[in-house]
Amino acid sequence: MSAPLLQIDDLRVRIPSRRGEVKAVDGLSFSVAPGEVVGIVGESGSGKSMLALSMLQLIPKPGRITGGRIALNGRNLIGLSEAEMREVRGNEIGMIFQDPSASLNPVLRIGRQVAETVEAHHRVTPAQSWRRSVEMLQGVRIPDPEARARDYPHQYSGGMRQRVVIAIGMANAPKLLIADEPTTALDVTVQAQIMGLLGRMNKETGTAILLISHNIALVSRFCTRVLVMYAGRIVEAGPTAQVFANPEHPYTRALLNAVPRIDRRVEEGLQTIAGRPPDLASLPAGCAFEPRCPARLRSCAEEQPPAFPAGEGRFARCWLAEHSKHQQGNSRS
């Protein structure tokens, strides 16, 4: 395998609060290869967005990164000065946020908002950055980009605004694009267009995409690899098709069950995951999913499961994964 573009090791993000330190990201490790499309799924409050913000070091105060390594092309971003981090933001790592209406400044022209991303990283004249901005708008399929660049966000539809946000994220052709819930605020038909656009960007420019979403269907269609996040940790990871077809971790299974399915009768009801996500300020000593887990063992509450390998490029943080491995081993012998 080629050298990873992004390598995160044992990342920890803490947010001090009145109830104690919230462990938003708790010893999390993964890597992204150049040009790869990786999905991160999990419930609200599992630390997905904090993880995204920590890569740009834009965690809202008083939260902070307390440990670990975020290496981009081998260079550790943690410990960089604010000025060095500014060089990374929008240039080496692009970011797309959830709500396109709120992500754009209502009083600045669309073209200006794309252009200033270019200007933040290149010595260009306003005319040059404007031209680049129009090019980018054309690239995200804004009709009549020359004229529409002079419009303001309120003159755009939601889907077009998200295209603009993508244009901003891609303006400097970053190696990595982080998309945090890029389609949550959009209509289903528009969602498909936006995901198609992101896919095209990935193929044409070779930009790796980290797609953060709670939409399992979206991730399964779009990502080659998936990371399942729970309580600030990755509980299962592997190729999307295998993980979703054959989940090892009970949490992944529960997530998949909670996806409403069109072929299931309404009378059967919508499946939910029993219980609530754990309080990140006081995590249990054992597995964080144990209180909600339908398959818990006695040891689960006592000891945190390590990442057990579960096939090619797969792992699961669950004692059951250890058992299943033993069974595989036994049957083979």
């Binding site: 740009l56 834009l58 809202p60 500014r86 060089e87 990374v88 933001r89 929008g90 240039n91 692009g94 970011m95 946020f97 709500d99 709120a102 992500s103 754009l104 400044n105 209502p106 200033e116 991303t117 933040a120 990283h121 946000v165 901003i168």
Partner: peptide, 15 residues
Amino acid sequence: MNLDFVRTARAKGMK
């Protein structure tokens, strides 16, 4: 200062 577009601006790498 805490609105989303300010965060977007910071994510652009602006000063």
